[in-house]
Amino acid sequence: MYAVETKDLTKHFRIGLKRKVIALDHLNLKINEGEVYGLLGPNGSGKSTTLKLILGLHQPTEGEATVFGRSSETVVSRLHVGLLPENPYFYRYLNGEETLRFYGKLCRVTGPALERKIDEILELVGLSQSRHRRLAGYSKGMLQRIGLGQAMIHDPKLLLLDEPTAGVDPEGSIDIRNLIIKLKKMGKTVILCSHLLSQVQDVCDRISILRYGKKVLEGNVKELLSKKDQFQFIASGLSEQDKRAVEELISRSGKLESTSHPTSTLEDLYMESVGGTKII
């Protein structure tokens, strides 16, 4: 059984009386349990529509989506699903703890079990310090984290994260990335919609790229990215003489494509100066 499966999933939107827009065109996905799956694509390519169809917020024009074998149009299919929506706001007048309690009660988690769960999740998303603060005073990153927290309150097997790092500082972004890796280790299935390709590259097992509602590419990230006929060395303390010798050696059976100094990514540099990650 797949965690999520879509069969010829198609969605048309009507604009005005006659015009219609094809948001999603016969999409077929098979997402395995325990997999971190990335949905990529430019704005308006159908990522959010796919998520909404999987969650039953929209009804498909054609085809169907199933979650753990249950049609996504049934409420039962949502028993094991958690969603972090894009730019979540939540109820400004509740504090972090109350927010989680509200969602917990909605999922019929009650009593001491709920309180335990709340403590645990606040710890996990790093909001234990701000549990009594109103959400009105939360930063963007904190909102994103409490959003992640509410998505996990009923311990779902599948998590759908829509742009989880949009508008979050690099530090928080890395926290969230690490959290996703942790979720994967716990055996959760995660579907991730994101523009931040480096992040997707880091955490996703498989990705698919959508364009104009159609799947244009799907596959294993490492396989898709690796250039099997090329090879990379990184060396340090190499003398100019030896370097020339190496170049000579390469040119014997191959072709030297380029030589350069490796650069650290801006993210690495930033994290180095800010001082590592806080959580996990």
Partner: peptide
Amino acid sequence: RTIYTILTKP
């Protein structure tokens, strides 16, 4: 967007 978080719960 709170409606999304509520209606995607059971």
